[in-house]
Design a protein around this nucleic acid. Structure first.
Lengths: 193, 193
DNA sequence: CCCCCCATCTGGTCACTGTCCGGATTCAGC
DNA sequence: GCTGAATCCGGACAGTGACCAGATGGGGGG
């Protein structure tokens, strides 16, 4: 009963997706192989292609799912700073999604599901920014907030901040980061002394 | 006389490197093929392997070269803000290097040349930070500056800022970004009402 | 209740890739 | 001018993505 679930697998699409996320999390997107995923799921080597068409199709589906998860997370944020914390936490909890989301050369760039999901996430981000900033042109503030959160998350995932961050919780580090930037010393450095 | 340069190519290593950078710039690291590079250089399909050992070895060499270029660029910066501008400009002028540098799953992680180059670049960054910041613990400021520049550069290269930035020069946008963050208005409750 | 349609999955094939190997060629130092 | 070593060639093998015709079986229309 266990090994082969008869002819129809039942939920092959999700099985392949989660297996792919496992591989990406541990070895990166380059190590992903459709045939290997098929082997893990116990199906024929061509079965996954029926659900995702391509290797790029699979990665596109992962990216779209990632943008939807991100949109949901950002919707829960109370504050712009909180949105940033949610952004960083999302990257830590879904590193595979995050990696794939921001490597466009792995996607089908015109995929409508991906475009829609990306737009949804972008809208949540813009909402958080316009709520917090009272300027006429919130675009710069949005770019700044997004860049800070995205850069921190990316450097974290690529193991470029292990030394400076140490064993502190990255979310707390990021919180103090926004603290020192946004509410930073008023006009000019008060200097230490 | 032109097509085959006799038996020895002369400078196959650099030829393969620049060809690889071309491919990565236009189609991403995933589209890179050692055999294709050999074809472009007009040599046997196994010739590149003699210089780089692996596919990962080629990408490791690119990453190391990138970190050295980055270190040289940062050394020319006068200011912390200027260092950030140099960082963003580097990403724009060497997108292939930049992409590969921050995808560790493509490298030989223990390669000494890569580790040394990365350390050199990190040192230049730390220098710029300690010069500009007079706090006891410049680590947070360094993380903040690096995150902002890196996030902006990454989002730029992944075409996530084309709409908001428009046709303005990205370096100028980034400059005003740092301006609005570091010298930002004093302590200010983000609450909207 | 039965039958047919169609989504799903199978098994095979082809071109391509990375990697390894032995051997050929040529450069550099003595 | 000779020899050792760096460089390059050509072949081989396993693994991969993509495509195809056909087998299977579940579910909706008759």
């Amino acid at each position: 009963m266990s090994s082969q679930r008869a002819y129809h697998h039942g939920d092959l699409r999700r099985t392949v997706l989660t297996a792919a996320l496992d591989v990406i999390r541990s070895d990166g997107p380059a190590a992903l192989s459709l045939r290997d995923l098929a082997r893990r799921a116990g199906v024929s080597h061509a079965a996954p292609a029926h659900h995702f068409k391509d290797r790029a199709g699979l990665l596109t589906a992962i990216a779209a799912e990632g943008f939807d998860l991100l949109a949901a997370t950002l919707a829960d944020a109370t504050d712009l700073r909180d949105a940033g914390v949610h952004y960083v936490r999302f990257a830590m909890e879904h590193p595979a999604h995050f990696q794939v989301m921001f490597q466009p050369d792995l996607h089908h760039p015109e995929d409508p599901a991906l475009l829609a999901a990306r737009t949804r996430a972008g809208d949540r981000l813009r909402e958080a920014v316009t709520e917090a900033v009272d300027e006429d042109d919130p675009r710069l503030a949005g770019i700044a907030a997004w860049s800070l959160a995205h850069g921190f998350a990316t450097l974290l995932l690529t193991h470029n901040l292990t030394a400076p961050v140490g064993d502190a919780a990255p979310e707390d580090v990021f919180r103090s980061l926004t603290g020192m930037l946004f509410t930073a010393r008023s006009a000019h450095p008060p200097a230490s002394r």
